[in-house]
Structure formats: structure tokens, C-alpha cells
Design a protein around this nucleic acid. Sequence first.
DNA 1: CTTTTATTGTTTCCTCGTCAACAATAAAAC
DNA 2: GTTTTATTGTTGACGAGGAAACAATAAAAG
Lengths: 148, 148
Amino acid sequence: MDKRQQLMSELMDLCNEITWLNKPELESALNGFTLNEIELIEKIALIPNANVTKLAAASYMTRGAISKLTKKLIAKNMIENYQHATNKKEIYFRLTTIGQKIHHVHQELHRSFLDRDKEVFKHMTADEFDTIFRFIGRYRHHLKNITE
Amino acid sequence: MDKRQQLMSELMDLCNEITWLNKPELESALNGFTLNEIELIEKIALIPNANVTKLAAASYMTRGAISKLTKKLIAKNMIENYQHATNKKEIYFRLTTIGQKIHHVHQELHRSFLDRDKEVFKHMTADEFDTIFRFIGRYRHHLKNITE
DNA sequence: CTTTTATTGTTTCCTCGTCAACAATAAAAC
DNA sequence: GTTTTATTGTTGACGAGGAAACAATAAAAG
């Protein structure tokens, strides 16, 4: 098989395996929350003035899905919405105090995953890190170019 | 942010972006087929004596989902099932002639995606390829270790 | 052999996300 | 300014996939 195709195929498999392995741990640790809800909280914490459209783009989901998810998170008192006086159309989201707590727990869990996998990174040189970072960066930059 | 966490986060994003970009192209080129159906055909082509359980493990889906998907693919005459005389429980799948055609078209599409993205790989040295391959291999090996 | 345990594939119920249409608002064109 | 076009968020119908219970068969234990 083509070397490039092999690389991308294994990369996809790796990501699937990690997701598949972490998902039940995340959902049982953050009981009562779906993985997607948790990840949406993460995005809202990260993106300033997050609205449905931005969250959809960042989550690789449709606006309809985000619209429903945010409603659920508001009902659970994890997030709240607000608007700017100058724009009656766009609706933004931010975390509530409880939402921030969940966010911190989630980050802690991710640290524990890294700890679980620390031996994978142990023997990596700075150069090797850079090589992979450059590859990812180049690919993402390329995708950005061809989609706009 | 931690360098390792950053790396994994960007890696996940990259995979999501690629999937998100390729999906509509695949589904419109292979009209009448879901992405998951196409990928299942791929797995059946790859795995010798593929059955529901093996396909579920390879696809990161439940056996229930695979059971339904294979039924659909049989209805569409893409695959057929068979059994071994020595085992009345396990049911295996293989591609029909039409299924093989779809499989080839799918492979061709993947080649076209690589061509679209060729500039990402153009300036990569063999060493850089190896570095990334080693990283993926090490990670997957680690995951295999801790899950059994 | 007989009994117990594990594995196979299937089905039903239910949740989640997409799709497509929609009204409301903003931006652009004129 | 007015009109047209684009973008925002929402909704309902629909389909896809997961969870769990199930019968059938195989494997293991005794």
C-alpha cells in the first residue's frame, strides 16, 4: 500500500482507538453527561463569545445539533446565554460556575489519560515532537486553504 | 498547555477535519451509500472470514449496529454471507461482484484525496515518515497492552 | 458424557444528530 | 432610503447507532 495512505489510515485508527477507550471513562467519571456535552462545554470555555454557528464549526456538528445540545446544557445549568446590545440575532454562551467545575474535572481527566499513556511520549525527542507538529500543522493549513 | 496534550488535541482535530471534508465527497460519489456502509464494505474486503463480532471491533461500533448494517448491505446485494460446515453459530461475510466494484471505486476516491493533499507530503523525508509511523505504532501498541 | 459458562448474532426500545424548512435579523446591493 | 441576499438560531420528521435482553450454539469445567 501507498506509504501516505498507510500513514493516514493508521492515524485515523489511532484516533478512533483513543476515543473509543476514553469515552466510557469520561462518561462514568462525569456521570450524567454525554461525551458530546462534555466536549461542548470544553469548546464554550475555549471560544470567546461562542455562538451556535461557531460551536458547530468547532465541533464538526450541524447547527441544529448544537442548538439542541446548548438547550440541554442550559437546562442542566451548565451554561447560560447572553447577547450584545448591538446585535439582536446572535446568541452567545458562557459557562456557569457549575459548568466551570465540570470543565476542570474534564481537564483533570485528560491529564490522567496522558499519565496513563506517558510511556508513549517518554522517549520522544524534541525533534520528533516538532516533526509531528509540523506535519499536523501543514496538513491543517492545507485543508484550510482548499476549503475556502 | 502541555506539549503532549496539544499534540493529541491537534491530531484529533486533524482527523475530524479530514473526515468532515471527505464525507460528502464520498457519499455523493458513491450515491446511495452511507459513509459507514462504504467503510464496512472496506473492512469486509480486508478481513478474512469477517463476521459481526470482528467487524464490530474493527469499526468501533456495537455488534447490534453491524448486524443491521450487514442486513442492509445484503439487501443492496453488496455482500453475501456464508458459514463453515464445522460451526453453526458464526456467520461470515464476503463481497459480491457489485460490492467489489464499489470497493474499487472507494479506493480510487482515496487515491484522489491523497492527490488533493499531495503537497502536504511532498517535502517529507523518509525519516519524518518513520518518526510519525513509530509514534503511531508505539501508541497503538500501548493501547493494545492496557486493554487486554 | 453432563453441566456450566462464554460467545455468537439478533431484536426492541430509545437517544442523539442530521436534514430541510422556517422566521428573524443583519448585510449587501441598488 | 428600499430591496435583495445571506446568516442566525430553531424546529419536526427521520434515520442511525447504542444498550440491553434474548435464543442458539460453542467451549470449558466437572
